[in-house]
């Protein structure tokens, strides 16, 4: 048994070393954000701050309206996620439980678009958004993600087996309409899947960069990722400021993660199960 114990200990140590290595960039960032700019660019580099300063955090708001960008990100990610989760449920339900002549065709489209790189649509959709006059408006970011092929697929697979036909049948015998059945029976049965998809899509939307970067012009409308890129372009020499700002954009998700750790892990793992 000692041999097994030894290998267990070895595995644990290796994992711990790996885990610490994983967090080093974050720790480095944390320490660096408390250094004076002079120290950051000094040679040779240091790991711990020689003199500790809060300047970068105190000056944060003067050139980077973090509250505004944060709210923009929250708004965009929330609206996009809620819409996509709801439509995924609706489409997934219909594709899973009804027979109609377009069904196979629609499901094939869902599968096909899951495989297709999104980039192929970027240029034409950009041209369309311009022609519609939607540039620099949130609708340009929200509209192309109202449906999520991935979400529809996940929901369809889940509802097919996770929602018993007998239950739906019973409700129909009781005289319930399809929309009521959907809202009062199907949705409550999918709570786990909903929270999984919500977390998954929210993370995706939260770090989305290229599309908002292309279609938004007004600074006040930028989400965090785009604003951070802008900040780094404008403050090429304010190293500490950049570090503090980066840290502040990372922190909210980290806090949310620790609040809902279990849900996060469930969410991610359910995205891979079929």
């Amino acid at each position: 048994m000692t041999k097994a114990k030894l290998s267990k200990g070895l595995i644990f140590t290796l994992l711990l070393i790996g885990g610490i290595a994983m967090s080093i960039p974050f720790i480095w960032l944390l320490f660096s954000s408390f250094k004076h700019n002079k120290e950051i660019i000094g040679y040779p580099p240091t790991f711990f701050p020689e003199t500790f300063t809060l300047t970068h955090y105190l000056n944060l708001n003067s050139r980077f309206n973090i509250g505004r960008y944060f709210m923009n990100s929250v708004f965009l990610s929330t609206v996009k996620t809620v819409l996509a989760v709801y439509t995924s449920l609706l489409c997934g339900y219909v594709l899973a439980k009804f027979n109609f002549f377009l069904k196979n065709f629609l499901f094939k489209i869902v599968l096909f678009t899951m495989m297709v790189p999104y980039i192929i649509t970027v240029i034409p959709v950009y041209q369309m958004i311009t022609d519609f006059g939607w540039k620099d408006q949130y609708i340009a970011i929200i509209a192309p993600t109202i449906l999520s092929s991935f979400g529809i697929f996940m929901m369809r697979q889940y509802i097919k087996t996770g929602v018993p036909d007998e239950l739906l049948e019973a409700a129909r015998i009781d005289g319930a309409g399809e929309f009521r059945i959907f809202h009062t029976i199907v949705i409550p049965l999918c709570v786990n899947m909903i929270s999984a998809l919500t977390i998954f899509l929210f993370l995706w939307n939260w770090e989305d960069f290229l599309w908002p970067y292309l279609v938004l012009n007004t600074q006040d409308k930028f989400p965090l990722a785009v604003a951070l890129n802008m900040f780094s372009g404008q403050n090429t020499t304010n190293y500490g400021g950049l570090f503090a700002t980066s840290l502040v954009t990372i922190l909210p998700v980290v806090i949310v993660y620790f609040m809902f750790q279990k849900r996060f892990v469930e969410g991610i793992s359910m995205s891979g199960i079929k």
């Binding site: 609206v79 408006q137 949130y138 609708i139 929200i142 509209a143 109202i146 409308k221």
Partner: peptide, 13 residues
């Protein structure tokens, strides 16, 4: 589509 999303448009500033 435009009709469907008019709600969203109003949310914009």
């Amino acid at each position: 589509l435009v009709l469907m999303m008019s709600v969203v448009i109003f949310a914009g500033s």
